[in-house]
Structure formats: structure tokens, C-alpha cells
């Protein structure tokens, strides 16, 4: 038996909306520690890792580890039916191939029950090493979204360069070139407005912009985003979900032949 209750159905809805274009099907692994998901896009270029800790839920019960394979577009269809302030309760047991989503309005006057068919998904999970990165940049998530969208109108790829003074995003295309340079900014009223650059060694990597633009769909989930880079390694783009976990996106770099 699995049962978990979230104060805001809207949170899960936003999470699924932010990842469902990259991965259409995924298996949620449920255990005493929470709900996890790891899935690659069909081209095996990017990966989504979602972690929702059990202590971030209002109620969480998983008698034993349990896998729930879901079509994320179908899941999104159901989650869209939740009211803005509804609570969400998820229920499933191994006896039937269904997960139930219960949406309850704040005054308890409306209770909606949606049952989603579970599916068997064969997927390969990758072991992601817990590596030290050469450079870590934290910046407002809206700023990162603006940068990748702006550069996406110029070129297909972005060259990211981190030095101790700044982080540069550069793109070029048929119409010309663009470079956006962000300096470290620590003296802000709100901590989420900071741009923090931690550099062990300078890095310079090139990535396909369309994936980064896709990752930035998670902008509404967190005020700030953390980008971790090491030479010739996939970049990590992390959105922390307050009090419950994170959604991380990994993207393999372009490699010089």
C-alpha cells in the first residue's frame, strides 16, 4: 500500500508539466524515503532526476518499495483537473494497476477522484557519480530562462564559460552572434536574486540550447537555479523544491571531433 498527501496538488502538476516534454513515460520509485524518478529522453542526451522526500509530504506511507510506471501526459491530464488550492492524495496498491489521485478543495466541499492506469516501463537507470564539479553557478531561475530563450533565437548551441569573475553564455548563428555575461552579485535584498559563482577551475562547454530551454520550463518551481559544470561532463541544472526535494536535469555536452 502506498499513500501520500501533498498540501498543493498544483506542485506535482507543475513538476510534471516541466518534465513531460522531455520524457513521456517514467517509473516513479516509491519507498520509505520518498518518491523518486530517473528517466532519459528518447535520444539519451538528457536526463531528469526527481526526488520528493517523504518528510516533505503531509502524510507518507509506503509499506514496501513500489514502482509506478506512468505516462506523464496522461498524468498531466488528470493533474490539470485539480483546483488551484486543492490538496492531493495519491493512493496505490500492488493488487491493481492503478494509482488514484484525490483532489480535495480547501473547504472539503468537493472531492474528485481520478484513477490512472499504471504501465510497465522498461527503462535503464544510469549511475550518476556524486562528483565534485569544477564550477557551480547559482542565479535567479528567471534570468537563466531569459538567457537560454534569448540565445535560442540566435543559435542552436550555447558555449558556457565560467571564470572566477563571471559566467558567459555565447551563441552564434546565421544572423550573427550574442554573448551574455553575468557577474557575481551577492549584495541583494533577497537571497534568491543572487548570482553566485564558485569556481575550482575554469570551464568551457557547449550544449544544445533546445534542451536547456526545455529544462527552464521548471522556472516556476524555484526562484533560483544551480548550474554545475565540469570539463567534458554533463551539466546539471537543479531546481530545489522548497521543503520537499529537487528536480535535476542533466545534459551531455557537445564534443569536439
Amino acid at each position: 500500500m502506498f499513500e501520500a498527501q501533498m498540501a498543493q496538488a498544483a506542485l506535482l502538476k507543475q513538476i510534471i508539466e516541466s518534465i513531460r516534454e522531455l520524457i513521456t513515460e517514467a517509473t516513479f520509485e516509491v519507498s520509505g524515503t520518498g518518491m523518486m524518478l530517473q528517466a532519459m529522453d528518447s535520444s539519451h542526451v538528457s536526463l531528469v532526476a526527481l526526488n520528493l522526500r517523504s518528510d516533505g509530504f503531509q502524510l507518507f506511507r509506503a509499506d514496501r518499495p513500489f514502482s509506478m510506471g506512468m505516462n506523464l501526459n496522461h498524468m498531466a491530464k488528470m493533474l490539470k483537473c485539480a483546483g488551484k488550492d486543492d490538496t492531493l492524495t495519491m493512493r496505490a496498491d500492488e493488487a491493481n494497476d492503478l494509482v488514484t489521485f484525490l483532489f480535495e478543495s480547501p473547504g472539503n466541499e468537493r472531492l474528485a477522484e481520478f484513477e490512472l492506469k499504471l504501465m510497465d516501463i522498461t527503462s535503464e537507470n544510469l549511475g550518476i557519480p556524486d562528483a565534485e564539479y569544477s564550477a557551480t553557478v547559482s542565479m535567479p531561475s528567471a534570468e537563466f530562462q531569459r538567457i537560454v530563450k534569448d540565445l535560442g533565437s540566435i543559435g542552436d548551441t550555447v558555449e558556457i564559460t565560467v571564470t572566477k569573475d563571471d559566467v558567459r553564455f555565447a551563441a552564434s548563428g546565421d544572423i550573427g552572434n550574442a554573448t551574455i555575461k553575468c557577474r557575481q552579485l551577492l549584495d541583494t535584498e533577497k537571497p534568491e536574486d543572487r548570482t553566485l559563482i564558485e569556481m575550482v577551475e575554469p570551464v568551457n562547454l557547449t550544449f544544445a540550447l533546445r534542451y536547456l530551454i526545455n529544462f527552464s520550463k521548471a522556472t516556476s518551481l524555484a526562484p533560483s537555479v544551480t548550474i554545475k559544470l565540469s570539463t567534458e561532463m554533463p551539466v546539471v541544472v537543479e531546481y530545489k523544491l522548497s521543503d520537499i526535494g529537487y528536480v535535476r536535469f542533466y545534459l551531455a555536452p557537445k564534443i569536439e571531433d
Partner: peptide, 14 residues
């Protein structure tokens, strides 16, 4: 000319 890397080249099977 740069080619797109695949994740399997960087991360092993779990």
C-alpha cells in the same frame, strides 16, 4: 565540428 554526446558515455549503468 562538434557532435552531441550521449549520457551513456559519461554515466555507467546503475
Amino acid at each position: 565540428k562538434a557532435t552531441q554526446g550521449r549520457l551513456e558515455s559519461f554515466f555507467g549503468p546503475s
